[in-house]
Design a protein around this nucleic acid. Structure first.
Lengths: 196, 196
DNA sequence: CACGTTATGGCACCCTGGGCCACAACGGAA
DNA sequence: TTCCGTTGTGGCCCAGGGTGCCATAACGTG
C-alpha cells in the first residue's frame, strides 16, 4: 500500500487509505453499505470517484483495511510457534491469537466486522479475502506433515479453522461483551466434544 | 418455482428454468461466466433481458438450479435419521449422503460445481446460498441437544460441516474420478485424526 | 366478444467498474 | 528560473447488473 514516501517524487497523493476509510465508515453507518454510492464517498473525501479505485480495487474492499498485512503477520506467527506441541494445538493457538485484536483500533474492530459479516454483499466478498488466510494454514499444515498444500488434509484444516472463527464471530456480534478469542477457543472445545 | 400449471390461466410462460439453464451453461462453458452478458443469454433463449430477472433474482443464481429444493430434502433426510446413533455421526452421514448426487444430472453435477466453485463471483455468492444449508444443520443440532439454533455449538457444527464439504469439493474438482461422498468422509476422518 | 388474469419486455434509470488520456503538482537538473 | 521526468488525479465514456414502471400480449372464461 502507500507507505509514506520520504522522497516525494511526482504529484503528492490527494488523500490516504485512512482518510477514505474514516469517511466511508461514517457514511456506511449512517445510510448503510448498499445505499452509499462511491460517488458520495468521493465527494466527502474531496476526490474524484475515479480516484477511489486507485486506493481500493472495489467498494467491497474498503472495509477490510490492511487485511493483507494482517495475513502476513499471521503466517509469521505460525512460523514462530514452537514445534514441540501437537500440530492441531499450534494451529488452534495461532487462530485464537489472530483473533485477539487491539481494543483501540479505529474504526473499532467490532464495527468493522459487523459491517463485513452482516452485509450480504460483504459477507459474500469475504470468502475471496479469507482465501489467502486459509492458504496460510494449509501451507503450514502441509509443511509440518510433509504433505502438499493442495492435499485434502491441509485444505480441510484451513476450511475448518475458518469455520470455527466464523462461528465465533457470529456469536460475538450477538454479544460483543464476550471475548472473541475466548469464543474461538470455546468453539474448538465444542467441536472436539461433538466429535468425541 | 414454476411447477407446470395444469390450469393455464393468463399468458403462458415464454420459457422455463430448465431452458434458461441449458442455454446459460452452454454459453458459460463457451465464453466464461463473466464474459457472458445476460443480454446474450436472453437473446439465445428468445426472451427479453428483463424477463430473465423474473426467473432468477440474479445472474449469480442461475447456476444453482433447484438448490432450494435440495435444502428441503436435506432437512427431511436429517429428520428421518435414527436417533440411536451419536449426534455427530448422524450429522456426518447426512452431509455425506447429501453430496451423493445422481450421475445423470443435466447439466452434470461436476460441471455445475466447477462453475460455482471456480468462478470467483460465484464462489463469493455461494456463501449466501449455503447459509440456509448451514441453518438446517444448526437447527437439527439445536433440537437434538436442547440448545438454541443461535448458540455457539449448533452454529459451529453448521460451519464445520460446510468446511468439510468445501474441502472435499476442492479435491474432487482436481480429480473428478474420486468419489465425492468418499472424500467428504475422508475429510472427516482427517479432521478427527488431526484433533486427536 | 369483452374481461380478468398472468407473463412479457421495452424504457428509463442507478450503480459498479475499467480503459483512456489530458493534466496537475511535485522535485531536480540545467 | 525554466524545463523535464515522474507520479497521482479525475474527467469522459462505455459495458454490464439490477430495479421500477407500465403498456401490451396471450391465454381461459363467461
Amino acid at each position: 500500500m502507500t507507505t509514506t514516501r520520504r522522497t516525494a517524487l511526482g504529484r503528492p497523493s490527494a488523500t490516504t487509505h485512512a482518510e477514505i476509510e474514516r469517511v466511508a465508515f461514517a457514511l456506511f453507518e449512517e445510510r448503510g453499505f448498499d445505499a452509499t454510492p462511491l460517488e458520495l464517498i468521493a465527494a466527502e473525501v474531496g476526490v474524484g470517484r475515479r480516484t477511489l479505485f486507485r486506493y481500493y480495487p472495489s467498494k467491497n474492499d474498503i472495509p477490510w483495511g490492511l487485511f493483507d498485512r494482517t495475513v502476513e503477520d499471521f503466517a509469521a506467527l505460525l512460523d514462530a510457534a514452537p514445534l514441540d506441541a501437537p500440530l492441531w494445538e499450534t494451529v488452534h493457538h495461532g487462530v485464537v491469537a489472530f483473533n485477539d485484536f487491539p481494543r483501540d483500533a479505529d474504526p473499532p474492530h467490532e464495527q468493522r466486522m459487523r459491517l463485513i459479516l452482516r452485509t450480504p454483499a460483504l459477507q459474500a466478498h469475504s470468502v475471496l479475502r479469507y482465501r489467502q488466510w486459509r492458504e496460510v494454514i494449509a501451507a503450514y499444515v502441509a509443511r509440518r506433515t510433509g504433505a502438499s498444500p493442495s492435499d485434502l488434509q491441509p485444505r480441510t484444516v484451513g476450511h475448518v479453522s475458518l469455520a470455527l472463527s466464523l462461528a465465533a464471530y457470529d456469536r460475538w456480534l450477538d454479544d460483543p461483551s464476550a471475548s472473541l478469542p475466548g469464543l474461538v477457543d470455546e468453539a474448538m472445545q465444542g467441536l472436539r466434544a461433538h466429535l468425541d
